[in-house]
């Protein structure tokens, strides 16, 4: 240490001076990797969607003129929508409990959210297969109770249940981050001014927590749109999502143009939704910045 202090190496000194003047040089190595492994592949796919097998918009007009494609596209949105709604409903009380709990209880609640996160995604989906299958845990319980068998696996319900569990951490974390910043005395103040607790919740607490809901819902929805493994293992023909079609076109039919076009549609949907939602997410910073 003291050596570098008294006698800095010439080259290192030059390098550090350059970095000091242009700190963004430090980003360069990471950027090169992203260009090679992210940008080039994406550009390849976008290009192929327009030129493979013949130049033009053929792949896109094929996509939008076939009913099956449109059904799957619509279903992808619908499943993502329901997954987002169920994530909000499940995560809201949970994140609220996290924000009011003591440190020890909070740690346990955080761990319960993260445990599934730390277990291999494929294994987690396998666990859901075991639970939801026709001879699975839930159905054995249902039959033991004397009811008819439920079809859970290979249905949209099964896919929704599995995806909600996988995506829940992405909803809980932003919600918790916003909720822990909300001053609970505001509710007490509303109550002391004569407001009913339920009304105080809807008029005071809920609006303050909305930025967290929007942030979490946006992430969950976007990630759900691109889900592949869970719908594949838990779903059936009636719950195919767009990702599966992309894979079929490229790997089974070797049709890079059509697969690429579907991929581009998925990309456009993802970034389009992000652009639509970002004004709502930005409010988060205004509020948290103002309250600090």
């Amino acid at each position: 240490m003291s050596n570098s202090n008294t006698k800095p190496d010439g080259a290192a000194r030059l390098g550090w001076a350059g970095v000091r003047r242009h700190p963004l040089l430090l980003v360069l190595p990471a950027l090169v990797l992203l260009i090679l492994i992210m940008a080039v592949p994406l550009i390849t796919i976008i290009a192929r969607s327009f030129i493979d097998p013949v130049p033009g918009l053929g792949n896109y007009s094929w996509f939008f003129s076939h009913k099956l494609n449109l059904i799957v596209l619509w279903r992808t949105f619908v499943i993502s929508f329901w997954v987002t709604i169920s994530c909000v409903l499940v995560a809201y009380p949970y994140a609220f409990a996290m924000s009011v709990a003591g440190p020890r209880l909070r740690l346990i609640l955080v761990l319960c959210v993260l445990v599934p996160f730390w277990v291999s995604g494929v294994v987690r989906t396998l666990a859901w297969v075991i639970i939801l299958q026709d001879t699975g845990v839930i159905n054995q319980f249902v039959i033991w109770l004397g009811f008819d068998k439920l079809s859970l696996i290979r249905t949209q319900l099964g896919v929704t249940i599995g995806m909600t569990q996988v995506l829940l951490p992405f909803m809980v974390m932003p919600l918790f981050a916003v909720m822990r910043g909300i001053d609970l005395r505001l509710i007490e103040a509303a109550k002391s001014l004569g407001s009913h607790p339920v009304k105080a919740f809807f008029q005071v607490y809920l609006p303050l927590s909305l930025p967290g809901v929007f942030a979490g819902a946006t992430i969950v929805f976007i990630l759900a749109l691109g889900f592949y493994i869970t719908p594949l293992l838990l779903g059936g023909p009636s719950s195919t999502m767009l990702s599966t079609l992309v894979q079929q076109q490229v790997m089974s039919l070797l049709n890079w143009g059509r697969g690429g076009a579907m991929g581009v549609i998925l990309l456009v949907a993802t970034f389009g939704f992000l652009a639509l939602a970002s004004p709502f997410m930005r409010r988060k910073y205004d509020i948290s910045g103002g309250s600090k």
Binding site: L24, L31, V40, P41, L42, L225
Partner: peptide, 28 residues
Amino acid sequence: RSAGILRAILITPIIIPGVVMAIGIYAV
């Protein structure tokens, strides 16, 4: 501003749908 844009770029791999990323990387 440029730092903010770079940060956003560095985070994009999370958002790109997995299968789209996969067929692109497979092609390359």
